[in-house]
């Protein structure tokens, strides 16, 4: 789930009205138009009664442009932004339940430490690992842990935020450079 230009995955964020059925409207639109969502995360935003959704969408530029336009078309969607810059923080939380015996426990804990993960739960035959990072990091950790026996994986989906660009930059210009903005509320 990369967000760079060469990847088939693109990241889009949408600011939506926090009303019953909004998630249904959005997911129904994706289904009806045949767009593929790789991940979707929803939560409250900084504004009351507004939520922010982050979609990682599979498709070429034309598809993503259509996704943007159709998101805009929904009355309850207020703003849509495609995150095209490298200069973003992309994070995901994963909980991983992994088989762990006396022999393997230490090795697993060492690996998790390298990834700045935490042991969130301990049981006689397994560990629950909590790890945060960009999706690539989580994929790498999962790859390393595979041989111990992954029992369950729970992932939140990616959320993204632009980094501070710096004092010298005009923040509006910076925003323009870093995002494809389809404009606010251009729905019909």
């Amino acid at each position: 789930m990369k967000t760079n230009g060469s990847s088939p995955y693109r990241t889009i964020t949408a600011l939506v009205r926090d009303k019953p059925g909004v998630l249904n409207r959005v997911s129904s639109m994706f289904r009806r138009r045949g767009f593929n969502i790789a991940s979707l995360a929803v939560g409250h935003s900084e504004e009351p009664n507004q939520s922010r959704m982050t979609f990682v969408v599979e498709g070429d530029e034309r598809t993503v442009e259509q996704v943007n336009k159709h998101l805009h078309k929904l009355i309850d969607v207020m703003k849509v932004t495609e995150v095209t810059s490298e200069n973003v923080v992309a994070r995901e939380l994963a909980l991983i339940k992994i088989r762990a015996t006396g022999d393997t426990r230490t090795e697993i804990i060492q690996i998790v430490e390298v990834f700045n993960g935490k042991i969130a739960g301990v049981a006689p035959d397994h560990l629950v690992i909590e790890v945060t990072g960009d999706p690539d990091k989580i994929e790498s950790l999962l790859g390393l842990l595979k041989r111990f026996g992954v029992m369950e994986v729970m992932r939140t989906g990616t959320i993204v935020m632009e980094r501070w660009i710096g004092h010298l930059h005009d923040s509006k210009a910076a925003a323009k450079n870093n995002r494809k903005n389809w404009g606010e509320a251009a729905s019909v």
């Binding site: 939506v16 009205r17 929904l74 009355i75 207020m78 703003k79 606010e184 509320a185 251009a186 729905s187």
Partner: peptide, 8 residues
């Protein structure tokens, strides 16, 4: 009051 609806 439809902040998400402003047809061009």
């Amino acid at each position: 009051d439809l902040p998400g609806y402003k047809p061009t």
